[in-house]
Amino acid sequence: MANIMISGASTGSFTMTDEIRDIGNSKYLKVAMSDKPYYARLSTEKPSDNNMYVVFENNRYYVQQNPILFEPIHYEHDRGNFEQRFNVWLPKGEYLVKVNTTTDTFTIPSGANVVIFITTTIGNGVLLAITRDGQDLFRKNKKVGKNEVLFELSRQGD
């Protein structure tokens, strides 16, 4: 990742990414270096440790220290037979996966479009698989009780 370094009345360093999908649906600052685009994530929230901002459409947006934004995924379903698929962009990093009361982690070395597949059949429990190009990044089979099925995915960092 590239960095923006500023000095003067305010100093700071801001990491940028070369993958625009890493910033989610956020506003961004695009910087070209050697004909390659890099992106810094912008937000209306002022970080406590920097004053770098841009004005866009009469609004002030502050450059965020970390360009990667991943909103945790939370999914619940009543117990019964069902199948659900999600197509999601996962930025590189370590992820925490919770299936009902069990937690596990896995790491993605580079961002990827993945398919999250969750299915439950009465008597067989729940299967959760996270795959990229047909290859498992994560797979968990778990017996479940008579309650609902809960799935959570959150990014823990690089």
Rank of each mutant, 00 (worst) to 15 (best):
A32G: 05
T102C: 08
F117K: 11
K46R: 11
M16Q: 04
R85E: 14
S48Y: 11
Y75E: 10
L153T: 04
N58H: 15
I68C: 00
I4Q: 09
Y38K: 03
I108V: 13
G93V: 01
E57M: 09
L153N: 08
G12N: 10
T121M: 09
P67N: 06
I4H: 00
Y75Q: 12
Q135F: 06
T102H: 14
D18C: 05
T105A: 02
G123H: 07
K146L: 09
V149F: 03
P91W: 11
E94G: 07
K98D: 13
A129H: 12
E83C: 04
P37Y: 00
H77V: 08
S43T: 05
V115H: 00
I118R: 06
A32P: 02
L153F: 06
D22P: 01
L96C: 08
N124T: 10
R155E: 07
Y95P: 02
Y53Q: 08
L128W: 10
V88Y: 04
D158H: 08
P37H: 11
R139A: 07
N113H: 12
V97G: 02
S43G: 11
F106N: 01
G8R: 12
N100A: 03
Y39T: 02
S26C: 14
I20D: 01
D18R: 15
G80T: 09
L90V: 04
G134M: 10
A2G: 07
I20L: 10
N124A: 06
N147P: 00
L29A: 05
F151C: 01
N147T: 11
I108C: 09
G80K: 13
E71W: 00
T103H: 04
Y39F: 12
L153E: 07
R85Y: 08
E76A: 14
R139P: 01
S110V: 12
L42Y: 04
P67Q: 11
I122Q: 14
R41H: 10
A9C: 01
T17C: 06
N50G: 15
G80I: 03
F70M: 06
R21W: 04
S7M: 03
